[in-house]
């Protein structure tokens, strides 16, 4: 039996407790993270062209990982969100020894092309918050686990399209696959299949590596009134990640993390401005 199976029972008990007492503002909030993806000021849709860095692009795959979500309470408390159900899986430590490792953090896997739905963050104290902090990435031992050991419904379980390199340790934490307009006619161009080919419209950016994980702090206040289910609405502007890249240069259009640290660094630098807290609903 897992906690997942218990959750409905827990929810029922919670409901009973709630009706039993007056609603008051000290009650915790059952919080969800409601992430939505945009490009160029409009909702993102897979395979639909949008303006990016002075040209036209489209993304067929747009996936990312958030972890280490920490809510910054006005009273100074930092509320770190842990997974509802920790999982124990194989990992390899720095000395290449295989160990059993427990992943305790709540990971959020966002597959923008498939459409995003709210992710439960569990119960948190109500009240006013000055903002939140999280990591765009997977780091530490969590990045050296055997993905197949995670239960199918875990954010770190194998994904299709994949978020793990397999031929190398670790997760891709930001994956963009699509096409760009390279001849300037306003429509995206086909891929020739050859990486970094000047004649190819292929747009590929797979960013990973524990050292590339980027902390994002959003000093954007919100308030949780408590007592009920509330959604923290956050927007991620996918085009903002690549702001400043020069898409006329084939090497800025194709980056699998190795040998393109300049592209990776640009993305890291853009990470904070890609996210916005919209409010609580």
């Amino acid at each position: 039996m897992t906690l997942r199976h218990l959750a409905p029972l827990g929810a029922l008990l919670l409901a009973l407790t709630l009706t039993a007492c007056d609603s008051n503002s000290n009650e915790p909030t059952d919080l969800r993270l409601d992430l939505s993806a945009t490009v160029d000021g409009a909702a993102f849709a897979a395979g639909q062209p949008f303006a990016v860095n002075g040209t036209t692009g489209q993304l067929d795959i747009a996936q990312l990982y958030l972890s280490g979500i920490t809510l910054l309470h006005e009273d100074g408390r930092e509320i770190a969100i842990l997974a509802e159900t920790p999982i124990t899986v194989r990992a390899q430590d720095e000395n290449e020894a295989e160990i059993q490792h427990t992943v305790t953090e709540q990971y959020v896997f966002a597959n923008a092309a498939a459409g995003l739905s709210p992710v439960s963050l569990g119960e948190v104290p109500s009240g006013r918050y000055t903002g939140l902090r999280f990591l765009l990435g997977v780091d530490g031992l969590d990045n050296r686990i055997a993905p197949g050991d995670a239960p199918d419904d875990h954010p770190l379980a194998p994904k299709d399209p994949s978020m793990h390199w397999n031929w190398n340790a670790g997760y891709v934490f930001l994956r963009f696959d699509g096409l760009l307009d390279i001849d300037g006619d306003g429509t995206v161009d086909p891929s020739t299949g050859t990486p970094r080919d000047a004649a190819s419209g292929q747009w590929r950016m797979h960013v990973g590596g524990g050292t590339n994980a980027q902390t994002v702090t959003l000093n954007q206040p919100f308030e949780l009134s408590g007592g009920a289910m509330e959604d923290l609405q956050m927007e991620v502007d996918l085009a903002a990640f690549v702001s400043g890249l020069d898409f006329s240069d084939a090497s800025d259009r194709w980056c699998m993390t190795g040998g393109c640290q300049d592209v990776v660094d640009t993305v890291k630098g853009n990470a904070s401005s890609a996210f916005t807290v919209l409010g609580v609903q």
Binding site: T2, L3, A11, E84, P86, T88, T102, Q106, L121, E123
Partner: peptide
């Protein structure tokens, strides 16, 4: 049994993991 907040890193979760991996 009240629903346990997740952010406090609680004993209940640990017990459940133990029984889950036992299965």
């Amino acid at each position: 049994m009240p629903r346990v907040p997740r952010w406090c890193g609680c004993l209940l979760a640990a017990v459940l993991v133990a029984s889950a991996s036992g299965c």
